[in-house]
Amino acid sequence: MYVEKFSNLKKLILYAIVLTYLVFVLFPLVWLVQSSFKSMYQALKIPPDLIWIPTFEAYHKALGGGMLKAFMNSAIVSLSNVLLVLVLGISAGYALANLKTKASQNIGFWILSIRMAPAFGIIVPLYIILRTFRLVDTIFAVTVAHLTINLPLAIWLLKGYFEEIPSELAEAAIVDGATRTQVLLYVLVPVAAPMIVAVSALVFLLSWNEFLFAFILSSEAARTVPVLVASLAGTMRFDWPLMCALSSLALIPAFVLVVYLQRYIVRGLTFGAVK
């Protein structure tokens, strides 16, 4: 397999670019995480203490009360979104990629643009419709609502990717007597695995962090992490360390999942088969 070779200088420049960006990304994150081990006063103190006796009070609150449930809810919602998007999105994306009619070309765009009308406009009608269907405060409702964003997005992305896969692959399999479903499952999905994994990561992260729908739809039983965190920014009280602790905790599952998925975003596993 071909591996691109660079000079050391080029490598150095690339590393420098990425590392500079990483400093920008990590500075607020590190600051958030360290704030979660401080009191509000310590967190705002300048110059900041680099060595301090950490307090675990925020974590005690976050893990002790009824807050853990929000993590469970978030996990259920995001994971079921990933699963449903995988099942429905792959088949629909593949079907649309094969249709090639004008109408199907940008169906994802249409669904999305209507669906992503500004929050201040749709919050009232959405509330009305969900009340009518008695869907308020169920995890099911939050999952479905997230699907309405994630599914069109995933279909649209996967359709685009499927179109780029050389058609010889599928044709060769069909000549060998495979059905369309078999082609999809045994030929295309393995080839497209890296993209599917990347799309899954995207869906997971978007669902994990979605606020608007989760907020309208949940009261207390179905609250997700972002809704919980936002509710702490109340009036006359500001528990910044707790907000930081919850956000830091929210980073962990996402971090683990993305690291895990990383291993699958390896390319070119099966492309060699074409030749």
């Binding site: 990425v18 960006y21 990483l22 990304v25 990590l26 607020p28 994150l29 958030l32 990561a201 992260l205 978007l206 994990w208 962090n209 606020f211 992490v225 972002p226 965190v229 936002a230 920014a233 907000m243 930081c244 956000s247 929210a250 980073l251 996402a254 971090f255 993305v258 690291v259 990383q262 291993r263 975003i265």
Partner: peptide, 17 residues
Amino acid sequence: GIMRTLIALPLVIPPVV
């Protein structure tokens, strides 16, 4: 791998935070 993961992380921080 690790760099990709780190770059993806801000997406998990709730916008309010």
